Simulated scan of single mutants.
Amino acid sequence: MKISGNTILLSGGGTGIGRELAQRWHDAGNVVIVTGRTLASLEETAKGRENIHPVVLDVADPEAIRSFAAGLLAKFPALNVLVNNAGVMPLEDTSVPRDLSRAEACVVTNLLGPIRMTDAFIGHLREQADAAIVNVSSGLAFVPLASAAVYSATKAAIHSWTDSLRFALSGKVEVIELAPPAVQTELTPGQSSRDGYMPLDAFIDEVMSLFAKTPTPELIGVERLAFLRNAEAEGRYADTFAALNSSPV
């Protein structure tokens, strides 16, 4: 993936990892369109950066995605990078009957959202030079957190789907997975100051250095990701699962 000269569409750009990526890519010489459900937070991402363009979009709405794609491509025909970052992480007790609306919304946003966004733009991206798709998964794609079981399952699905998408688009569109470990953001309440989580600035610094590599790694994984990513290969999955799920969230 090129470092500069791209036109990038990034979902979930109003806070956290999405905001930081948008601002870093902008400052590296890219045009960035950020989407999310709240205009005020998107405008905060774009503040002082003339080439960040905020647009309200709910990736859980398939009709909105279709109409958004047509309008966006008319305005930004040079679009060549799609970053599927929008996500939600409900914490739930799956051992008891419950209202499944939050779990279902998690599946729609985290899994169907990227699938629908990719479908809406793939025809265009296949015709662009230096085209890329970046799918944001999670360290929990490799070892799940039981209190976020549905979230973990959606991220495991994103990991699997990204591998298949990369194979299908080989030679046409570069497909990259970004798998964050536990990072200090507001994805869950209180997470931005939680001990043991990776500071957001340090995470973004390491991520940007990995994106700058030639060739770009297929999986952007910071050093801290190895604890979860390599657990099964190193024969310590059961111990890692137990350690992960013994810690309060």
Results as ranks from 00 to 15, higher is better:
95 S>R: 14
78 A>I: 00
200 L>V: 03
89 M>C: 03
37 R>K: 15
22 A>N: 10
191 Q>F: 12
21 L>V: 07
123 G>F: 09
204 I>A: 05
133 I>E: 01
84 N>C: 12
23 Q>W: 02
126 R>T: 11
83 V>S: 03
35 T>E: 12
2 K>G: 00
147 S>W: 05
200 L>M: 02
202 A>G: 14
186 E>P: 02
15 T>W: 03
127 E>Y: 00
188 T>K: 01
227 F>Q: 11
17 I>M: 09
62 P>I: 00
88 V>I: 15
144 P>R: 04
29 G>A: 11
148 A>V: 07
202 A>M: 11
206 E>K: 12
86 A>P: 03
200 L>E: 00
243 A>V: 00
189 P>T: 07
214 T>F: 07
51 N>P: 00
132 A>V: 08
220 I>A: 09
235 G>H: 07
227 F>T: 14
141 A>N: 03
55 V>D: 05
132 A>Q: 12
149 A>Q: 00
30 N>K: 09
151 Y>D: 04
8 I>L: 11
93 D>F: 08
186 E>C: 06
209 S>T: 14
68 F>K: 11
49 R>E: 13
63 E>L: 13
129 A>H: 07
69 A>K: 05
118 T>A: 08
84 N>F: 10
31 V>I: 14
240 T>D: 13
4 S>F: 05
103 A>P: 02
201 D>E: 15
16 G>W: 13
85 N>P: 13
51 N>E: 12
13 G>P: 05
231 A>H: 09
161 W>E: 02
79 L>H: 01
132 A>D: 08
33 I>Y: 08
172 K>Q: 15
141 A>P: 06
193 S>E: 15
105 A>M: 04
214 T>C: 02
248 P>F: 13
161 W>H: 14
90 P>K: 02
79 L>T: 04
142 F>L: 04
82 L>F: 09
14 G>E: 06
67 S>H: 13
34 V>H: 07
48 G>H: 13
156 A>E: 10
10 L>H: 08
205 D>W: 10
157 A>P: 08
83 V>D: 05
127 E>N: 11
53 H>S: 05
124 H>E: 02
123 G>I: 08
169 L>I: 09
203 F>D: 04
71 G>N: 14
104 E>L: 06
107 V>E: 04
222 V>F: 12
142 F>P: 02
117 M>N: 02
13 G>C: 06
167 F>G: 06
220 I>F: 09
80 N>L: 08
13 G>E: 10
101 S>L: 06
158 I>S: 09
45 T>I: 07
140 L>F: 12
12 G>T: 05
128 Q>L: 01
237 Y>I: 05
215 P>A: 13
166 R>P: 12
136 V>C: 03
25 W>C: 00
197 Y>N: 05
5 G>R: 06
101 S>T: 15
219 L>W: 04
224 R>A: 14
82 L>D: 00
181 P>S: 08
35 T>W: 12
185 T>H: 13
218 E>K: 14
111 L>T: 01
92 E>V: 09
152 S>I: 12
8 I>D: 07
8 I>K: 05
72 L>A: 01
37 R>S: 10
126 R>C: 08
153 A>F: 13
94 T>M: 14
57 L>S: 07
195 D>C: 04
74 A>T: 10
104 E>G: 00
102 R>S: 12
